[in-house]
Design a protein around this nucleic acid. Structure first.
Lengths: 224, 224
DNA sequence: GGTCGATTAAAACATCCGTTTGACCATGGC
DNA sequence: GCCATGGTCAAACGGATGTTTTAATCGACC
């Protein structure tokens, strides 16, 4: 089943490589598989990308550049000034919107290749990992920190950072443990609306945690 | 660097295989690498375990049987009746002890092979995944649910389950994203006491969340 | 029309892979 | 002593792998 034909050889290689690397990993995918799927010669990979590793790197570069622009397109990257001025109600809305967007983005349907490739980089970090961090994880963490900082004022930078990590952690968790979660649920894929429903839970859980920690900090401050 | 010598061939194979499968994955590890590390002949793997896949399966069986007994040894598996009778203070202590034990277990030092093998099964599920679920994830989830159920009485089973997932999620997250977390921190491994410190954060975060959700449920009940 | 650089194609290369074979060796029962 | 048995070994097998080589093809430009 070759990829769409009206594209350059290098693009078709990239498309096929995304599919197969995501599905079977670097070691589990052969140049010949990729070439066959792309409908090109085995030598094309080396000609256009130098080596198998070069092709893999190009795949991740392309994917996570796309991730960044996709997230920007969905408009969940409001200018920092907007977050600074937002009311509590607006902050909560932004929080849930962000969590929902990330989950929908990662869980599909169909399940995106991004999540799988990211997971693979956690298993076997390559020189592509810095790209993923820079293009996806770092900006998402910073934006989340900005939101959290407004939701729990006067908290130490480190506390804010830990909380942002807990939130992002819950989100990524639902992607990374998908095979297990589905097995526990005895289903073959997440049901319709699962991302939204899960986002609601994570939001509720996390906002209660944040509010509780803020209240705790206030009462400790009074006791001093 | 061969493995200790005063053991049977099949045991030395298993030891070497744990190391290498954890480090480089199934596809990334060759029978020859394993045999060399174990100091035995290449044919030994097939003789004792039938095939490479058979050896891999044996590795995971052994590892996660060990996990189960190790967790039992650490005494964080109190009989269900103890949880049923525990005071709030005791429940909180059990909660933090469980989170701490899981984190110390997963993060090391040195980082355990279990976590890495588990992560690999999330990437490429094999017939070993049911073993991991049955030996580790399922029991941990059930125990956590039991604790959570006591901490937020009268909650629906589904809510309890979601919360338990959020807690386990945060714990596994710190293992799964280790390469990224370390990169963001610009360190090569987690500092001493990191597991304990992180367990404190997860406990604080989660208990605040649970208490908040419990209070929210109560006030909604009153409004009705 | 011819030249040249860029691209594609087929074939070959060397290496590595999982697996199998058949010989060798120790041990224990008869 | 001798065979049966279970374990270990070097060697080889067939196939797959990433990569390279070499030749053919295409398109633009003078």
């Amino acid at each position: 089943m070759p990829v769409a034909a009206d594209r350059t050889t290098s693009d078709r290689l990239l498309d096929a490589a995304v599919e197969l690397f995501a599905r079977h990993g670097f070691h589990g995918t052969s140049i010949r598989d990729i070439a066959e799927r792309a409908g090109v010669n085995v030598a094309a990979g080396h000609y256009h990308y130098g080596s198998k590793a070069g092709l893999y790197l190009a795949v991740l570069r392309a994917q996570f550049a796309e991730v960044r622009s996709e997230l920007a397109r969905r408009g969940i990257e409001p200018p920092a000034s907007a977050v600074r001025r937002a009311s509590r109600r607006e902050l909560v809305r932004l929080f849930e919107a962000r969590v929902t967007a990330m989950l929908e983005f990662l869980l599909g349907p169909p399940p995106s290749a991004h999540g799988q490739l990211m997971l693979r980089e956690m298993c076997d970090p390559t020189e592509a990992l810095p790209i993923i961090v820079a293009e996806f994880i770092e900006p998402q963490t910073r934006e989340m920190e900005r939101l959290v900082a407004r939701l729990i004022p006067d908290a130490a930078r480190e506390v804010v950072s830990d909380i942002a990590f807990s939130v992002i952690g819950q989100v990524l968790f639902y992607r990374f443990t998908m095979p297990v979660a589905l097995r526990l649920r005895r289903e073959s894929r997440y049901p319709r609306g699962f991302a939204r429903k899960t986002a609601r839970h994570i939001t509720t859980f996390s906002l209660n945690a944040i509010d509780g920690m803020a209240a705790g900090a206030r009462s400790r401050a009074r006791a001093r």
